[in-house]
Design a protein around this nucleic acid. Structure first.
Lengths: 369, 369
DNA sequence: CTGAAAGCGCTAACAA
DNA sequence: TTGTTAGCGCTTTCAG
């Protein structure tokens, strides 16, 4: 810049003043400290800003002596680089946008912990894009992704966020999908095989001798829901059981949905003997409702959930559930994204993590086989 | 900048080329699109970059005609402002750092939803600073806060984050504490009165006729823990009961701590008849353990938790607990921070939200009074 | 190994 | 109402 030198000497004067007058007010000093730039450090160390930048970036083309003086000046001034400036110049932000359907959902919370652990190790931080289960909220994050504010995106919502006529995958920004594979997306996808898992649930029920079933669904259109339902039906079909033997309750992956399904179940004359809920919350809501009404789980009705949240094994009875490796999902997803950022392997790449069926006390043989 | 004009005309040529050759590869076009700047828009609209900037900022000193042309050019080019550049120049980032003890904790997850709702309304996004319950992780976020990357900080960890010899409150950055008041911090503090709440718990127990107690603690030094414990002791003291009547189990706000306390409880000869856990998870872990061992809650032992997490009322028996207004805590905390950012009211300012005692089925009179 | 200088893309002060 | 221009604080060629 044109007056780089003038500015530099002005800064030097500032410092001298600060040293001389020790009776500056606390607030004023803080303001000054907040304004410390690489120029100040350079002036103090008696080197150029380029050298400071190099020393701080750990470049090995800088002499030990210069480096030492820079570090000393940094300590003395309490300098912290301005990331906004660095980001602009270096065209990276060290920020990852994590799009999550609902931050308040404990399932995603643990996945986020895995993501965070991996990202922090690599020096990245996490911006949360909370959709709050609202599609309208997607647009905001498409814009954010487009704005040069993030270096990559992790999507947990099972669909490509869209808004203002743009879809996030048109942005030429590294991305990865976690927890829910997005069909056709040319990016790494880290998830459990929902379909396979649901077939396992069906087999478990069939093995116990069940013939009449209930299914509590997730939100319509949700990719996890779709896969879980069709997998369940597919698994039953093996035993020649069609979907007419499955009572379907519509749900939204929350406790309340389980409660409502439970109420409807109680009102039925010819009740299913086994109920599969597409997530643990719904299974728990269901169990609570039927137990409160005087029924026994599993004797009167077997219940299976999905996710394997921590509370599942603290229920009474403990819940049989498909355990998703939540922390690992997050960790692996973040790692896949980081790899994608280093060397874009462009193309769909599925990484499937195993989800074991955890047998709890909520399932048994039906009373009358 | 020195060659602003030259650059502008170069850009214009780029556009003409794009219009003429429609057989550009998809990737190339994306790259071009990603590089669209305010200059391109200005050129297209036939105005200066300043006008574009004003039009986009919603300034009212711009003519309707100019505004229309800018908007048209924005649409045509698919322009999205580069936030990194805007942040640098405007000295704001529209980002708030949210320091959370543990992202995976469902309690904080719901608080975060409240925070997010409030922030999004005001146009801010949320960077998560996850401490993972590790003090060492604080330094990272002190640095981030110092780097000009965030406009404010929301602290949920109950202590001022420190690192590299700096404390976050020395940064002259607007902040607010949520969920846990930080004694002496000159900033808004939004929390429940833990002490008062614990006195209520003690009164509830005493009212039922209990005389021997158990307490499952949070992490040592944690401000919520300290207040809850001393409040409980204070409440008991009113009835002339000293802390020798309280068995103390050390815990860490997790399910496992409750399990361990439960095991120890089972091994006791002269068991307490009422147990207060400093959070619901520990209460649930405790209940599960003693019930599995054949005891009855509340007949053999009354249990009270803290937080009022959603699962509390899905336990069997439903848990008696102090319900914290989690969403409201987040929302109010975020609002307080935004106010602080507008007009620094500097100084400690406590906002206390009520925590009602929710009476569940986990407490009753002791068997032998 | 070091420094000078050119910007990253944007906003805001100042002119016109 | 609009345009010109000077940077925000940093990194990175390009010379030396």
């Amino acid at each position: 810049m044109c007056d780089g030198v003038n500015q530099q000497s002005r800064r030097e004067e500032d410092f001298r003043q600060e040293e001389m007058t020790d009776n500056v007010s606390q607030t004023r000093r803080q303001a000054m400290r907040a304004a410390i730039t690489i120029q100040d450090v350079a002036a103090r160390a008696g080197v150029s800003t380029a050298t400071v930048s190099r020393a701080l970036a750990g470049s090995n083309v800088v002499s030990a002596k210069a480096r030492a003086r820079v570090m000393e000046a940094v300590t003395e001034t309490g300098y912290t680089p301005n990331f906004a400036a660095r980001n602009l110049r270096a065209r990276r932000s060290m920020m990852i946008l994590v799009v999550v359907p609902n931050v308040a959902n404990p399932f995603f919370a643990e996945v986020m912990r895995g993501i965070d652990d991996e990202l922090v190790t690599a020096g990245y931080d996490m911006i949360i894009g909370n959709l709050d289960n609202l599609v309208e909220r997607e647009a905001r994050y498409v814009k954010l992704a487009q704005s040069g504010q993030v270096d990559g995106v992790l999507i947990m919502s099972g669909r490509v966020p869209e808004g203002d006529g743009r879809a996030m995958n048109e942005l030429d920004l590294p991305m990865a999908a976690v927890c829910a594979a997005i069909p056709g997306l040319a990016a790494p996808q880290v998830a459990v095989d929902d379909r396979r898992a649901s077939i396992d649930v069906a087999e478990h029920f069939l093995g116990l001798g069940h013939r009449r079933f209930g299914y509590i669904s997730g939100p319509e259109g949700n990719i996890n829901e779709t896969e879980r339902y069709s997998g369940f039906i597919e698994g039953l079909a093996v035993a020649g059981i069609g979907c007419e033997a499955v009572t379907y309750w519509h749900g939204l992956f929350n406790l309340q949905a389980g409660v409502e399904a439970g109420r409807d179940f109680l009102s039925m004359a010819d009740r299913p003997t086994a109920v599969y809920a597409a997530c643990d919350e719904m299974a728990i809501g269901f169990m609570k409702t039927v137990i409160s009404a005087g029924l026994q789980v599993p004797e009167d009705v077997s219940v299976v959930g999905f996710d394997g949240i921590e509370f599942a094994e603290f229920m009474n009875p403990t819940l049989t559930t498909m355990r998703q490796p939540r922390y690992e999902l997050g960790r692996t997803g973040a790692r896949a994204l980081l790899e994608e950022m280093n060397g874009p392997s462009k193309g769909e790449r599925r990484i499937e993590l195993a989800a074991p069926l955890i047998i709890g006390k909520s399932t048994c043989r039906p009373r009358f086989v």
